[in-house]
Amino acid sequence: MAHPQLLAALFMLLSMISYQISASFAKQLFLHLDPLSVTILRLCFAAIIVFFMFRSWHIFKRLGFLKWRDLLCYSAALCLMNILFYISLGKLPQGIAVGLEFIGPLGLALLSIQKRSEYIWVGLAILGIALMVPWQQAFEGNFSILGALCALGAGLCWAFYIYFGQKVVQQNIGMHALTIAISLSALSLLPIGLYHNAQALLNVEYWPQALVIAVLATAIPYALDLQALKRLSKLSYGTLSSLSPALAALAGFMLLGEQIGFWQWIALGCVMLASIGVTFKSKTG
């Protein structure tokens, strides 16, 4: 049987691949709908999917015994992370938005360090992200201060998502925690979305795309994240998260023929070495 840390790393890898694929669908939908509407449609469809997928009606009888403080904080972090990242994605090049967002989980990884040797892996991940992100695009006239602030805010919410996610999995309610978090997020945003742009939300023409995004960007990755958070420390999770932009660059190279420069290859090496190091550190530690 696979070691728990290796299994968790596999869960995270699959989660990030699913999320990267969903990003292309979201970008296409941004041509027709605003980021808030896309976020709400995605969360609403995801809430329905996970409710039936995990048969979450069984959790109704336990609602009064749950630790709602952690669940509400987890739900709020998930909700705000989604909105802020999609707003930033609509205003910034994807590479810049992703790079700024990763300050959140990497910052949490830094704060979680307990041994000096662990600085090596987090440092390699930070160096890899710094080399991977196309910072030159920030000077090409398409850089938005608001977009940058939203990306940083999404990163902060991501850190809280990791922190409270680890507390939520300790309640032993399984995937029902995900159903509760996504449903609360969808229900809190739906009235705002209907007031903001009801026509967009009720236009069934865009529902199939939103359904695909809901599956690839919410139902699959968040379910895998909860499984990973059961087995990983905040340090390991934050460091392994740096694989996401590396996967995006490799996918572009292999599937779209996008070129990867010398420093980006160095960045890929740093991120992958950090991920391998922190995984086997957990295995032997």
Score class of each variant (00 low, 15 high):
residue 87 I to Y: 15
residue 55 R to P: 06
residue 43 L to P: 08
residue 3 H to Y: 01
residue 175 M to A: 10
residue 186 A to W: 07
residue 12 M to T: 02
residue 130 A to Q: 04
residue 106 L to S: 09
residue 162 I to L: 03
residue 244 S to G: 07
residue 182 I to D: 01
residue 229 L to R: 03
residue 29 L to D: 01
residue 165 G to M: 00
residue 195 Y to S: 13
residue 54 F to H: 03
residue 184 L to W: 09
residue 150 C to F: 15
residue 42 R to C: 14
residue 94 Q to P: 10
residue 77 A to V: 08
residue 10 L to P: 00
residue 135 W to S: 09
residue 10 L to N: 00
residue 263 W to D: 11
residue 8 A to V: 00
residue 176 H to I: 02
residue 257 G to I: 14
residue 136 Q to T: 07
residue 250 L to M: 13
residue 166 Q to K: 07
residue 163 Y to F: 12
residue 1 M to S: 02
residue 54 F to R: 01
residue 65 F to H: 11
residue 61 K to C: 11
residue 85 F to D: 08
residue 148 A to C: 08
residue 252 G to Q: 03
residue 253 F to P: 02
residue 17 I to D: 05
residue 151 A to Y: 11
residue 74 Y to M: 14
residue 54 F to D: 01
residue 93 P to G: 10
residue 175 M to R: 00
residue 284 T to D: 00
residue 180 I to D: 11
residue 129 I to H: 08
residue 79 C to R: 04
residue 185 S to V: 12
residue 63 L to F: 12
residue 143 F to L: 08
residue 217 A to T: 07
residue 73 C to Q: 14
residue 82 N to M: 13
residue 72 L to F: 09
residue 67 K to D: 03
residue 9 A to Y: 02
residue 266 I to T: 14
residue 176 H to T: 01
residue 106 L to A: 12
residue 186 A to I: 03
